[in-house]
């Protein structure tokens, strides 16, 4: 069925391009909302693009003892995030590439990206780099299983671990209340905050040595390498938002048989993103940054909630 395949390829390509191009915008929107909510004057909406552009034009400065691993990691990171965007049904569920990797592989992909950036952070051998790597991996080993449990809850409901199938099944059902998904939703939100270096765990806006995680890891990067890393972080946030939409707000995605639905799937995605960005900013504004050793507690809660969601699913059958 060539038209079907063409349609799938088109959705695939469009989804990836939209993700890569809109991710910095989404980040800019979140930053703008945060500024408004805390009575600051906001940076321009397009600020992240400007930053990336500026960084791309500069000469890269590398530490003398940087190994090749250090230089390839930004590209691997960026590649991993774009690949992830190709698996997540953000616009339509007809994704030929998603056959290659289900939700478990997606979690694995995020883990791969994390391991690489942590290794790169340790490569120069500075005190901050290894501290950041340690903290990032600490967040990771609690957040990653929590994310997996969230996905499992949804896949127990749908009988599949493929994200497009999950989104399709959840969107196509008659309206029903799934308490287990409510648990999973709360857990997912907590994981999203932790994994994207948002406020209760990390603050993307500061370089405070006692608390920084993500920024500590990328201290030694500059210019195009840093641009790619920043872009990858924006993409990561975008990807998490889209995973959230696929699991908890799966309506309005284009199906395989209906390519024209893409026309209104795109504005709908925009609406969802605007709402999600505002919500994210609100959460960040009202919550306080946790001490670093409260972070495991926060994440362990997320993990427990996700497991609880799975239990509720099994026991209530809903």
């Amino acid at each position: 069925m060539p038209p079907m395949i063409m349609n799938g390829l088109f959705t695939q390509l469009l989804g990836a391009i939209v993700a890569v191009s809109l991710a910095p915008l989404f980040l800019g929107w979140v930053n703008q909302c945060r500024a408004w909510l805390s009575n600051r004057s906001a940076p321009p909406l397009l600020q992240p693009y400007l930053v990336i552009r500026k960084l791309l034009h500069k000469d890269a400065v590398l530490a003398e003892n940087a190994s090749p691993l250090f230089r390839v990691v930004p590209y691997i990171l960026f590649g991993a995030m774009v690949t992830a965007a190709a698996i997540i049904p953000s616009l339509g569920t007809a994704l030929p590439f998603a056959v290659c990797a289900d939700a478990i592989a997606l979690v694995g992909l995020f883990a791969t990206a994390r391991v690489f950036i942590a290794l790169a952070a340790m490569d120069i051998g500075t005190a901050f780099g290894s501290m950041g790597a340690r903290r990032e991996m600490m967040v990771g080993f609690l957040a990653e299983p929590a994310l997996l449990m969230v996905v499992f809850t949804a896949s127990l409901i749908c009988g599949s671990t493929a994200l497009p199938t999950i989104a399709d099944t959840l969107a196509g059902r008659t309206l029903a209340i799934y308490p287990s998904l409510a648990f999973a939703g709360v857990a997912f939100l907590m994981v999203l905050l932790a994994e994207n270096a948002r406020i209760p765990i990390d603050n993307p806006a500061t370089h405070l040595e006692l608390t920084m995680i993500h920024e500590a890891m990328v201290l030694e990067y500059s210019a195009r390498h840093l641009a790619l890393i920043e872009w990858a972080s924006a993409l990561k946030l975008f990807n998490y938002a889209c995973i959230g939409f696929a699991l908890f707000l799966p309506w309005g995605l284009a199906h395989e048989d209906n390519p024209l639905a893409l026309l209104w799937a795109l504005p709908l995605l925009g609406l969802k993103l605007i709402a999600a960005g505002a919500g994210l900013a609100l959460i960040e504004t009202v919550s306080a940054k946790l001490r670093i050793f409260r972070a495991p507690e926060f994440l362990a809660m997320a993990f427990m909630l996700a497991v609880l969601g799975l239990l509720v699913r099994l026991l209530l059958g809903s």
Binding site: A176, L316, S318
Partner: peptide
């Protein structure tokens, strides 16, 4: 029944 299930889950939460 769905609502009660939801309430149950919220109680547990």
């Amino acid at each position: 029944a769905q609502l009660i299930h939801l309430a149950a889950a919220v109680m547990l939460l």
